[in-house]
Design a protein around this nucleic acid. Sequence first.
DNA 1: TATATTTTGTGAATGTGAACACAAGCACAA
DNA 2: TTGTGCTTGTGTTCACATTCACAAAATATA
Lengths: 207, 207
Amino acid sequence: MRYKRIPDETIRRLPIYLRGLLFTSEQGRQSISSQKLADFVGVNPWQIRKDFSYFGDFGTRGVGYNIEKLSKQIKRILKLDVVQKAALVGVGNLGSAILTHPGFGIYGLDIAAAFDVNPKKVGRKIENITIENVSKLWTLKKRKIKHAIIAVPRQVAQETANALVKAGVKGILNFSPCHIAVPQKVKVITIDIAMDLACLPYYTPGS
Amino acid sequence: MRYKRIPDETIRRLPIYLRGLLFTSEQGRQSISSQKLADFVGVNPWQIRKDFSYFGDFGTRGVGYNIEKLSKQIKRILKLDVVQKAALVGVGNLGSAILTHPGFGIYGLDIAAAFDVNPKKVGRKIENITIENVSKLWTLKKRKIKHAIIAVPRQVAQETANALVKAGVKGILNFSPCHIAVPQKVKVITIDIAMDLACLPYYTPGS
DNA sequence: TATATTTTGTGAATGTGAACACAAGCACAA
DNA sequence: TTGTGCTTGTGTTCACATTCACAAAATATA
């Protein structure tokens, strides 16, 4: 099984495992069993073992997985072994929350730039990041920033994406509640927080 | 096919369709073809048709789907045909962003209450919602609020969830970056915005 | 009425991931 | 060295979701 392609669903779960491993290593552990990790992150043990089996042998039978070795490998697969810079476009309420959000750090993610249209916001500093004018988006190319977060109103999301693609951005995390079209080589992940809430009533009994 | 159970993945896509339908109906259309809707929301047309086929005949061959009828049916399935109230716990940066977020409205969602531990925040008003003390969470039961959004620090996410469950909450949207354990009957959807960003580098070529 | 055109609805094929059970392997103790 | 207990690794089975292709149905046109 060692040389098979890693399924997308497994990739999606890797950050969950990584988070869990980092938090448990804080507690002084050196290794952890699939069962223990499962309890902690809320995924079945056999699912965890299968996922890990896609990229080599990390466990020791009878003992568990070496936390240090495993986290390093997961980081390498996700390309998080080097600091990954990202730019934020749109410093409204949601944008500000993202800028101040702790928790990007543990994945080696660094929000390294922020942009907004509002001239009043440009120049202001949030968390050591100086907000720049959106007209300066093209500078991302020479700054070698390949990832961006879109947190602008729906109406301007597509044009923002266009500008980002033109600036050489390869991956976009889109918080605007709409589909945005990009060239095939660019990866977009869209999150609509209202949409996720909208699914809840379906699953909750009694009206 | 009319009486088959609706797959989970279809349910997850229904809000996307609903969003698309509502925005296109603003443009004065009465009906829309699966092809047109597909272009708009970024899902394949045959996927759309299959999804709709799980719950009855809404399209007219040669014409398309009646937007009005279809949206109503989707809302009914998702139980969004009545206003669904939700409570927010944790009015920090992210919590405030959620409170002021437009876009819950179109799904008939109403953030009807907000709670925080910080006494300085309690009593303040944001978007017509007066922030209450978390010790008042138990009042959710008699207020018949069955959904909640958790936007508190990771360390207190589990105890917050416990309090919510005790208060009769049946569905939780969790923004804290951790797994929270709840009774089986309670549905939890966890969103970790850092995690989604962490997946991007894997898909973007060149480091 | 007949014919062309459009678009839905769906059975079947294909692909993908989850669940399971158990053999293989390691550690530790006697 | 042998046995016991624990945990991984994986082949297999099963369930679900996506994709495809085409018949059926409605409309428009002549």
